[in-house]
Design a protein around this nucleic acid. Structure first.
Length: 442
DNA sequence: TGAAATGTTGGGGCG
DNA sequence: ACGCCCCAACATTTC
């Protein structure tokens, strides 16, 4: 039995412009070996999902199907397993002669821990592990201040990010010339179906690839109007790596600076989570952990279901519940409403988004919530409270977005506001002020 | 990537 | 013509 190099796909579900895959194929060619592509459906994650119609699982499954077609064309095949990663790796080491494993970096806390365990197992078996940067442009400690410290403010971070960017950072890692190095199994291994894993199909809401360039071109003009197709909805593709961030940056440099900044925010929050891991469970600024959040389960439930009586908030939550997506402008509005108007813990909202968002990314979601709650690095000051009515006036003046998701708007079925705006605003201001008083700098 | 409160200015009605 | 008041409209400050 010939020995193999394994390439392990995780958040990089594409065969084009994939750093780790490129290096795996190159190494294989140099050493006269083959590359076996692998994906593991991770039960550590899947077992926690109580809704078995999960769009994320379906999205992954679909992306794997597309890759499988590609591998088939190269007379190869993707090996897909379902189980706990460490156990799967133990099995694979028994079943195949594995010389080396290649994979791309995954920065989330769980992923870090998973990869350390696998790395220990592999090295105990004398298998080398090679890992690469792929899902971001600059990772962890590649963008630092003059004092070599991580940034915690976006604007100077982005300035440095842009200053450091060269063609090298956005150039592709083509795999086409190395296709012959793919593993060629005698029999195509079967991929578990969604049903076999206990999941059902749902459906997916994306704009076509063709309209994306137009959206990027006018992004700075249209991005704030949720009734329009003004955002690319590429976040889910970035989440699972079905697009290359390097390609997107090239597009952004060419077409739209504002849109480039959105990509830089991704890198920014990734390095925040890496260097300040406490943000996963507590406020970036410790003083803000003293805010006495209300523990009102009923208000929280009304927020979740889109029954607050504030149309723009309810529209956003209903869009999320129905599609697994919410327009970014509306994410800010509903987050401000939860934390300021309802004075509910930002972590409740963060957790709900984590359950529902197709594009859920721990670093970005946490960063966004802490921004809205005012608890984060470079956050909105706590007294910046969105007024749902004026936000509607500015960004959905014809109520197009609202009516799409709240059709009963003008009927008796639509609830009264669960809290008065003026009262809620003043309550938030005084509560934050009181809680932060002992920590005031002067 | 706010909104509300407060301050300032200037045109027009009116005695 | 003049002073006074009202109040948009805009600017600044405050939360």
């Amino acid at each position: 039995m010939d020995s193999l190099i394994v390439f392990w796909f995780r958040r990089d579900l594409r065969t084009h412009d994939n750093t780790g895959l490129y290096h795996a194929l190159k190494a294989a060619q140099e050493e006269g070996l083959r590359v076996m592509p692998l994906f593991i459906f991770d039960r550590t994650i899947l077992d926690k999902l109580d809704d078995k119609r999960d769009r994320r699982v379906e999205f992954i499954h679909h992306a794997l199907g597309e890759m499988q077609q590609d591998f088939t064309a190269s007379h190869s095949s993707l090996l897909v397993r379902y189980g706990f990663p460490l156990e799967v790796w133990q099995e694979l080491l028994q079943e195949y002669r594995i010389k080396a494993v290649f994979t791309n970096h995954d920065y989330e806390p769980y992923a870090k821990q998973r990869d350390e365990a696998v790395s220990t197992l592999l090295s105990a078996q004398g298998v080398s592990l090679h890992t690469f940067k792929d899902t971001v442009i600059f990772e962890k400690s590649e963008v630092l201040t003059a004092e070599e410290r991580p940034y915690s403010v976006f604007t100077p971070y982005s300035r440095k990010w842009k200053a450091q960017l060269t063609d090298i950072h956005t150039s592709s890692y083509p795999v086409s010339e190395h296709r012959s190095a793919f593993w060629q199994p005698l029999q195509t291994p079967s991929m578990p179906t969604l049903e076999e894993m206990g999941f059902q199909k749902v459906g997916e809401p994306f704009p076509s690839k063709e309209v994306r360039a137009d959206i990027v071109r006018s992004y700075n003009q249209t991005r704030d109007f949720p009734a329009q197709q003004g955002t690319t909805r590429l976040s889910v593709h970035l989440r699972f790596g079905t697009v290359s961030v390097r390609e997107l940056v090239r597009t952004a440099l060419e077409l739209n600076e504002t849109w480039l900044n959105e990509l830089i925010w991704r890198d920014f929050y990734m390095q925040i989570l890496w260097h300040f891991p406490h943000v996963e469970h507590s406020a970036f600024k410790p003083a803000y952990d003293h805010i006495p959040w209300r523990h009102d389960e009923l208000d929280f439930e009304r927020w979740c279901k889109g029954l607050t009586g504030y149309p723009i908030v309810d529209a956003g939550m209903r869009e999320l519940n129905a599609t697994g997506f919410m327009h970014n402008r509306v994410r800010m509005i509903v987050a401000s409403f939860l934390t300021k108007h309802l004075l509910l813990d930002w972590r409740w909202g963060e957790r709900y988004f984590a359950q529902k968002l197709l594009d859920f990314d721990l670093a970005a979601n946490n960063g966004g919530w802490q921004w809205a709650a005012g608890t984060g690095c470079d956050a909105a000051p706590y007294f910046r409270i969105f007024n749902p009515a004026s936000q509607t006036e500015k960004f959905d003046p014809k109520l197009e977005y609202i009516k799409r998701w709240v059709p009963e708007l003008n009927s008796f079925d639509y609830p009264q506001p669960i809290v008065d705006h003026k009262f809620a605003r003043e309550r938030a201001l005084s509560t934050y002020k009181q809680a932060l008083k002992p920590f005031a700098t002067e």
